[in-house]
Design a protein around this nucleic acid. Structure first.
Lengths: 343, 343
DNA sequence: GGTTAGCACTCTGCTTACGAGAGTGCTAAA
DNA sequence: TTTAGCACTCTCGTAAGCAGAGTGCTAACC
């Protein structure tokens, strides 16, 4: 299905105007605003045709038109002008990243803030992670009696801590020896290469306490990114008129809970390389039915990577969203590349 | 100012009914519901008197009465029945704590969930901390080139991490030696005992990189608890009728942001030992004007301690709130005591 | 003197009515 | 194919009317 040039232009105007004003667009106001060389009656005919194609709808007779999900889809894939950020906009973003410390976690958080602020919608960013996480180093620190603090450093350059309880009291000396032994044995291994519970028999009791804790930590780390995306800008989004009714607001508030989003982010839709757009009920039904995702991957091809993007009502400035998501993803990728290559 | 027994009883009924129904209470409905041996006219007279005392108000002529902030204050300090949790309720809570792992962080999170669920309001819990934090142990782990991971263990039994950048490349061996030296010198010191920037001259360059990072981490740790209380149950609270209008909801959503709450929690009001109640504009003005806090301290007298409590509309079930906050605080304190004494 | 019945008065919230405004669909003419 | 014209429809804001709930006051009662 391809529209005539004129019909496409009219659809684009409807989408643009609606994104802008959040009110249904009538034939007359369209002609006035865009100085089409046409009468409102002609536009009405074209609109009727667009409605037959399923690209726009009526909220009710005698109201203006609003884009349907299919209309948005057609718009983003055939009509939307390719837009990149101006160098001014790029500079503003870069500046913020350069002001931040060189901590990876901070960049990720910053990426979320930048997206939320620029797009007035919810920004989603997952922590970067390696598909396989390896144990880099573990340390044991005496706490009290038979307790010790376990610090695990993993290849995705995060440190994780946990208190352990041993069957008997272990002093720092014994703990250090134990740590050295385990580092030698398990250093640079992935979870998959760890002994399973049954094979653990040959290990001593203290060893197996540590090993199973490490195992658990690594496992959790492998899933951590998916479990808790950073969510920023919820209030920004809720300020938009589609959420004006408090019921809708509460439902949405529930839907953008980190824990909910874990399962709901349609990461499958993400192709390689570019930005993916998921519109309305292209997602599974439910609370996201009238919302769209604009998503991209970031990170290093062979190395750690994550996902970032925006969530907002289907009436979203897709052009801006794509441009911002793409740029921030590029910046983050570049920063990680430099970190990896040691400047 | 002390009310007559009857007048007090009437005030208590008004407060109770209003907490329950969220609609202004009229003289007639009061008589009907509580089988007072009085006519509505008499109750009206008493209500007029209570209004003169400033304990209740009219939203407008010919509406029922609602408690004023002063009315709530009188209620909680003189009228409210002392309530403790039933053993059933206690058991349910204890059960949840026993199901959780023995991690302190998890308990704190759990305390927030329990309060939020039981009271349908926002639960606030700060991480426990020592008033003075001491450096227990530091470790350095080689990352790449001139970068290393610094792991700092503090006396409040938390580990903290940060990447460092040295002027020159340091290998694990050198890093370990450096760590050993610094541990010997700074182990068990508080921030206050650290050398200030000027005195740092005698240290080598690598040393001073580490020391200033540790210093910063300890400082941040000393304030961490105040900065980011755990906030749970926002949606529960927003479901209540006082937030039915979307503007109010957005304002409140902003007010319960972790970063906002840091400064707003009226921790000064908290006496020793028992639960503090802060009602309405007894807090500084602004978004908390029509909200109340019910707060308590938890933790060990000489050791780590924190704050926990509830935030909700002034129309809050104060009796339940106090009972729950007190009990959860006791449970948390007891758990920490056991942890400290090594079971 | 405290208590109560009675009554006029008031304010909200809901329903109904109505007109202005914006928009559509259709027909017939250009 | 485009457009002018027109009847029709739906929303939204305002006003009016009315039931319901509540108050304040007065006068009578115990």
């Amino acid at each position: 299905m391809a529209l005539s040039e004129r019909r496409g232009r009219i659809l684009a105007f409807i989408v643009d105007d609606f994104i802008d004003s959040a009110t249904p667009i009538g034939s007359q106001s369209l002609v006035e605003r865009h100085a089409l060389g046409l009468s409102s009656a002609t536009v009405r005919n074209e609109m009727a045709a667009l409605e037959d194609e399923g690209l726009i709808t009526h909220p009710h007779t005698s109201a203006g038109r609003i884009p349907s999900h299919r209309g948005y889809r057609y718009y983003v894939s055939s009509l939307m002008p390719e837009r990149n950020l101006s160098s001014q906009e790029q500079f503003t973003i870069l500046h913020q990243f350069h002001q931040a410390s060189g901590q990876l976690e901070e960049w990720v958080q910053l990426a979320a803030s930048v997206l939320a602020n620029n797009l007035h919608n919810v920004a989603l960013v997952t922590q970067p992670r390696l598909l396989e996480v390896r144990l880099k180093h573990l340390q044991l620190v005496e706490l009290l009696d038979n307790r010790a603090l376990l610090v695990v450093v993993t290849t995705d350059s995060g440190a994780h801590q946990r208190t352990l309880e041993f069957p008997v009291t272990m002093h720092q000396e014994a703990l250090s020896r134990l740590a050295t032994r385990l580092n030698a044995e398990f250093g640079n291994k992935t979870v998959a290469e760890f002994p399973s519970r049954e094979d653990a028999a040959p290990l001593g009791e203290a060893e197996s306490v540590v090993v199973s804790a490490v195992r658990e930590l690594l496992l959790r780390e492998e899933q951590a990114a998916v479990e808790a995306p950073i969510v920023e800008g919820v209030r920004e989004m809720l300020r938009q008129p589609e959420f004006g009714h408090s019921d809708r607001m509460l439902d949405t508030l529930e839907a953008v809970d980190e824990r909910r989003l874990r399962d709901a982010i349609p990461s499958g839709a993400m192709g390689e390389g570019d930005v993916a757009i998921v519109i309305g009920d292209e997602n599974r039904a439910g609370p996201y039915q009238d919302m769209s995702f604009v998503l991209a991957r970031y990170g290093l091809p062979g190395g750690a990577s994550g996902m970032l993007g925006v969530l907002g009502p289907t009436r979203m400035a897709y052009g801006d969203a794509v441009a911002n998501v793409r740029y921030v993803s590029d910046v983050l990728t570049e920063l990680m590349r430099r970190l990896h290559e040691g400047e």
